Computed example of a mutant assay.
Amino acid sequence: MVEGNFVDYIKIHAASGKGGKGSVHLHREKYIQKGGPDGGDGGRGGHIILRGNKNLWTLVHLKFKKHYKAEHGGDGSKSRSTGKDGEDIYIEVPLGTVIRDGETQEIIFEITEDGEEKILLEGGMGGKGNWHFKSATNQTPRYAQPGVEGQEGWYQLELKILADVGLVGFPNAGKSTLLSVLTSAKPKIADYAFTTLKPSLGIVEHREFQSFVMADIPGIIEGAAEGKGLGHRFLRHIERNSTLLFMIPADSDDINKEYNILLNELKKHNPELLDKDKLLAISKSDMLDNELKSEIKKELPKGIDHIFISSISQMGLTQLKDKLWQLLNN
């Protein structure tokens, strides 16, 4: 996926259709001069419906169309004929899309399954025709209901990436390089911070034709939970990952301190993130000999399994995939 085509936030204006008018009609035939009321009901207005599509990975297809308006319902007619329902508008979204009210920011619903359909705005009901209002004291009512107005408003769509494994680390920790080696993804790689500005996804092939999805997400900095750096736009993507792979380079000044900063930022954003399965990968470890590894092991954080890897020399990558697969299938 081209980085510029990844869109994870969009605002749209949606309007459902108005219900059709009920008909005011009196039955007439050649030998029936004064028939009773037979005005039909109006059709309902079209809905605005969001539908999950597993083949979409981004909201880029909504970037250049901001307004969606459903069709109005048709008016009722004679012989109790109901008006045509307004055509519904379907908006396809990737799995993991959260829909918020554009003004209150309240979450309305989420789309997480392929083919899942949820009505964002219901179309207005059609008005009742005059035959509904016939009674013993009013046998020829000359009135009917108008259709109910549709609804409209601004809505915010946010994508939270659905992946099995999310890469967590500071900028320039080697996350993009690992993804490019383990998968066919082509993230931007360079030797400076914030190379990755948009999430990238790749499919990791494992033993016996098994696979899982890995996400390279822009790096955390201290204060990300308060919005520093890429802040919340990064952190929300981690919420959907089953397992978190923490990556800290072997040449870090203090691996334990970096890990605790990363953990603290996740906790401040959403404490439930700490309940996910976690694994610590010490990247760029091809520069270490056994003596240095032994020294580093003494300083590693407690309570999390670790592995030494190198994406360039592919050291430890098979064992890494084995450990991740085991965590995903516990």
Rank of each mutant, 00 (worst) to 15 (best):
H25M: 05
E71M: 15
N329H: 15
K78N: 07
G36E: 08
A144E: 13
N330L: 09
K257T: 00
E208P: 03
L157G: 09
H206L: 13
H232S: 07
K175Q: 00
L179M: 11
S79D: 15
D322L: 14
K65V: 13
D253W: 08
Q319M: 11
I282D: 04
S294D: 14
K160I: 07
S184L: 14
S180I: 01
P94H: 00
R44Y: 12
K298M: 13
G123C: 12
P199C: 01
I48K: 06
E152I: 03
D75S: 03
S180Q: 01
N55V: 05
K297H: 05
Q151M: 14
Q145C: 11
H232Y: 07
A193W: 10
G127N: 11
G223S: 10
S311N: 02
D88K: 10
K278V: 08
P37H: 04
L178G: 00
K11S: 11
Q210A: 14
E71T: 14
F6P: 02
T82V: 15
Q314E: 15
K54F: 05
V213H: 04
D216M: 14
G96A: 03
T137H: 13
D254F: 08
G22R: 05
P271M: 06
G22N: 06
E92G: 01
L273I: 05
K34A: 07
Y68T: 01
V24K: 12
L266W: 10
Q326V: 04
I10C: 04
A281F: 09
K276R: 15
D254T: 09
I220L: 15
I309R: 09
T104E: 00
Y143I: 02
G124H: 06
N5A: 09
G43L: 02
G39P: 08
L120M: 10
V60H: 03
A15Q: 15
G147V: 07
G36S: 07
E103P: 01
I296W: 02
G42F: 09
I32N: 12
G73D: 00
K284R: 14
G36K: 08
L120C: 07
L266R: 08
E258A: 08
T243W: 00
Y155Q: 01
L288Y: 01
G76S: 08
N290T: 05
K188L: 14
K69N: 06
L201W: 01
W57D: 12
L300Q: 03
S184V: 08
L292Q: 15
R233K: 15
F209E: 14
I296F: 02
G219V: 04
H237C: 14
I189C: 11
N329P: 02
S285Y: 10
M287L: 07
Y68I: 00
G150W: 02
A163L: 07
S294Y: 10
T58W: 00
A190V: 06
V148D: 06
F194Y: 12
R233H: 12
G316L: 08
N5I: 07
A281E: 07
E205C: 06
N53K: 06
T104C: 01
T243L: 03
T140R: 13
Y31V: 08
F170K: 04
D322G: 14
P249E: 11
I309Q: 10
S81T: 15
S23L: 11
I119W: 08
H25G: 01
G76V: 06
L288N: 01
V213I: 15
K134P: 04
